[in-house]
């Protein structure tokens, strides 16, 4: 089943074309990587897919529903959650509250039952707390749940952001440089975690990453973006031996 599809996605800022004719098809259970030099337009692709930007032209479909033009929260509710390159946690709130916030749209009670403290409110809050704690256990953050998000070590913050995205109950998970700033050991751990989470939650994953060990170790397919144009697509092995890709990364002289 096609989970996420982008057709001829183009994004222009003024006269600058950041992404041009981008195409993507993700099927259930895929794990696909998006790589490319800095400034190639990778994050812009993410921002278009998640509704942060409205693409200049092209179409985006999530689970068969056309989403370009929808707001980010609507797209999230359809089943696609993301993390951010520069970590956007609610950094002055506790780890626990960071996760609880992401359960917001799934909470099945209205303002009136919150004000009147009706049984539905108590039941739902209980269930949110339990689900939050379960997620924190999985990510090894349970002992830190009363700490402030910004006081966590960098690697933990990255993992908390992934946990928070999962709390939004996605079927498709978009990770923007999940291993940025991590040491090789942490990256190795993270690779295992992403693989495990993908299987456990039956996710489809699309990720941007510079760390080639993570990308090559995890992804079935890889897209290479350069100056907003997809210059290659294929298995990790194909990409590694693709002359165009090597040229984009290393420049003319490398050949």
């Amino acid at each position: 089943m096609t989970m996420l599809e982008a057709r001829n996605l183009t994004m222009q800022f003024g006269g600058l074309t950041a992404v041009s004719q981008f195409n993507l098809t993700l099927s259930q259970g895929d794990i696909v990587g998006l790589i490319g030099p800095n400034g190639a337009g990778k994050t812009t692709v993410f921002n278009c897919l998640t509704g942060m930007y409205v693409p200049t032209s092209g179409e985006i479909h999530v689970l068969g529903k056309r989403v370009d033009g929808l707001s980010p929260h609507q797209i999230t509710r359809l089943g696609m959650a993301r993390t951010f390159q520069n970590i956007r946690l609610f950094k002055d709130l506790t780890v626990f509250d960071n996760i609880r916030i992401a359960f917001h749209y799934q909470a099945q009670y209205n303002l009136a039952s919150a004000i009147l403290r009706l049984p539905t409110f108590r039941r739902e809050e209980q269930s949110i707390s339990e689900k939050t704690n379960a997620l924190l256990e999985i990510f090894g953050l349970y002992d830190h749940r009363h700490e402030i998000a910004s006081s966590l070590p960098y690697g933990d913050q990255r993992r908390l952001e992934i946990a928070r995205a999962l709390a939004a109950n996605p079927k498709i998970l978009l990770l923007d440089e999940p291993a940025a700033g991590m040491n090789p050991y942490e990256t190795q751990e993270l690779t295992t975690l992403i693989q495990w989470v993908k299987d456990e939650f039956e996710l489809t994953v699309f990720l941007i990453e510079h760390d080639m060990r993570l990308v090559m170790g995890l992804c079935q397919r890889i897209l290479v973006l350069d100056y907003g144009v997809t210059i290659a697509e294929g298995t990790p092995r194909e990409i590694q031996s693709n002359a165009v890709v090597v040229q984009a990364y290393l420049g003319e002289e490398a050949l």
Binding site: S71, F84, F90, K91, I101, A102, H104, Y109, R164
Partner: peptide, 20 residues
């Protein structure tokens, strides 16, 4: 949960939006 939505907006509007 509604109150947490308010606070989420205060803390980071873009992240709040991304959380649905």
């Amino acid at each position: 949960s509604h109150g947490r939505a308010f606070v989420a907006i205060r803390e980071d509007e873009i992240a709040a939006e991304a959380m649905g």
